[in-house]
C-alpha cells in the first residue's frame, strides 16, 4: 500500500482484519452512544452531539456516554498497545504490563493518593501523575533488579512477577490501614472501572495515546527486526538496547496512563495483542493492531458490564474473558512443546 512517499506492506489478511475490527469498533461505539438506561431518540442524540441538545441531553450523551466511550477506546488502545510492546521485546506472550507489576506499581501509587489525599493536593490529574510515576518507578526497579550485563526478557518477567506480588501486598496493606469509605473507593478503582470516566480523563489520555501511536509507527521496523532475535537485529541495522528501552518506556507510560483513568483492568493488555496477532496473522504481537483490538475489547466489555442486571466494573468482564484465553494459550503451548 502506498500513499505518496509512504509505503507499508499490508497483507490482504491484515487489511481485512483491520477493516473488520475498525467497523466493529465503530458499531459498538454507536450502540454505546445511542443507547443507555435513559431513552433518548437518535435524532436528539445527534443534536446533542452537534451541540444543540438540552442541558440534560448534553449531560447524558456528551459528558457521560461519549466520554465513557472515548475513554474506553483510549484505555483499550493504550493497554493493547502496551501489552504488544512488552510481549514483543521479551518475546514472551506472558509479559504484559499487568503481569510484570507495572500496573500494580501504578495502582499502588494511585491507592496511596486515594487513601492519603493530603499527600498531593489536586484532583484526577494528580491521580494520573501518581499512577504514571508509580509505573515508571516500578519499571525502573524491575529493570535494575533484572539487569545483569544487559537486558534479559525472561529475567525481567521473573523479577516482575515478584515485584507484582510485593505491590499487591502493599496495596492490601494500604487498604487495611485506611477507613472504610476510602477503602471502598480504592477497591472499586482497583477492579478496573470506567463508570466514572469523564471528558477530562479523555483529554488527559488522548495526547499520550496519540504520541504512543506515532512512536509505535516509528518503532515498527525495529521491533520487526528484533523478532528475529537479539543477534540478528543488529545485523539489520537495529540497535536492540535502544529499541527495547524506547518500547518499554512507551509501554509503561501507556499502561500507567490507562491505569490512572480506569484502574488496573485485568488481562486486557495480555489478551488483546495475542488476539490481534492471530486475527491479523502477524509474526508477533502487533502494537497498533493490538491497540485497535484492545479498544474493541474494552469498549465491548464495558458495554457488557453496563448492561448486566447489576452493573459490574469492566475489569470483571475482561477477567472472565481473559482467564480462559490464558489457559487456552498455556494448553496450546504445552501441546506444541511436548510433541
Amino acid at each position: 500500500m502506498r500513499v505518496g512517499p509512504v509505503g507499508v506492506l499490508v497483507r490482504p489478511r491484515a487489511g481485512v482484519a483491520g477493516l473488520v475490527v475498525a467497523v466493529a469498533l465503530l458499531g459498538v461505539a454507536g450502540v454505546a452512544v445511542f443507547s443507555g438506561s435513559l431513552d433518548i431518540a437518535p435524532a436528539r442524540v445527534l443534536a446533542a452531539l452537534a451541540g444543540d441538545g438540552t442541558r440534560v441531553e448534553t449531560l447524558v450523551v456528551v459528558d457521560r456516554r461519549l466520554a465513557r466511550t472515548l475513554a474506553a477506546v483510549l484505555v483499550g488502545f493504550a493497554l493493547g498497545c502496551a501489552g504488544a510492546l512488552t510481549q514483543s521485546i521479551t518475546r514472551n506472550p506472558i509479559a504484559s504490563p499487568d503481569i510484570l507489576g507495572v500496573t500494580t506499581g501504578a495502582g499502588f501509587f494511585a491507592v496511596l493518593l486515594i487513601t492519603h489525599p493530603a499527600l498531593l493536593p489536586g484532583g484526577s490529574a494528580m491521580l494520573a501523575a501518581a499512577a504514571i510515576t508509580g509505573g515508571l518507578v516500578t519499571t525502573g526497579g524491575i529493570l535494575a533488579l533484572s539487569w545483569r550485563a544487559g537486558f534479559d526478557g525472561l529475567r525481567l518477567i521473573l523479577v516482575g512477577i515478584s515485584v507484582n506480588a510485593i505491590g499487591m501486598a502493599g496495596v492490601s496493606w494500604l487498604l487495611l490501614r485506611t477507613d472504610i469509605d476510602q477503602a471502598a473507593v480504592a477497591m472499586r478503582w482497583l477492579t478496573g472501572s470506567l463508570s466514572g470516566a469523564r471528558m477530562p480523563d479523555v483529554l488527559l489520555l488522548a495526547p499520550f495515546v496519540l504520541a504512543a501511536g506515532l512512536a509505535c509507527a516509528y518503532l515498527a521496523r525495529d521491533l520487526a527486526a528484533l523478532r528475529l532475535g537479539r543477534s540478528v537485529a543488529p545485523a539489520l541495522g537495529t540497535a536492540p538496547g535502544r529499541t527495547e528501552a524506547l518500547a518499554l518506556l512507551v509501554a509503561v507510560v501507556l499502561a500507567s496512563g490507562a491505569t490512572a483513568v480506569a484502574g488496573p483492568v485485568a488481562f486486557a493488555a495480555f489478551v488483546a495483542p495475542q488476539a490481534a496477532m492471530r486475527l491479523f496473522g502477524t509474526a508477533g504481537p502487533p502494537p497498533l493492531a493490538g491497540g485497535l483490538t484492545g479498544a474493541l475489547l474494552i469498549l465491548a466489555a464495558d458495554l457488557t458490564a453496563q448492561r448486566l442486571p447489576a452493573e459490574l466494573p469492566v475489569g470483571v468482564v475482561t477477567a472472565v474473558v481473559g482467564a480462559p484465553f490464558l489457559l487456552y494459550l498455556l494448553h496450546r503451548h504445552r501441546r506444541r512443546t511436548s510433541v
Partner: peptide
C-alpha cells in the same frame, strides 16, 4: 526483512 536497512521508517 532483509530490505530493512534500505528503508526509511515511513516507507516500509
Amino acid at each position: 526483512r532483509g530490505r530493512q536497512p534500505h528503508q526509511p521508517w515511513y516507507r516500509r
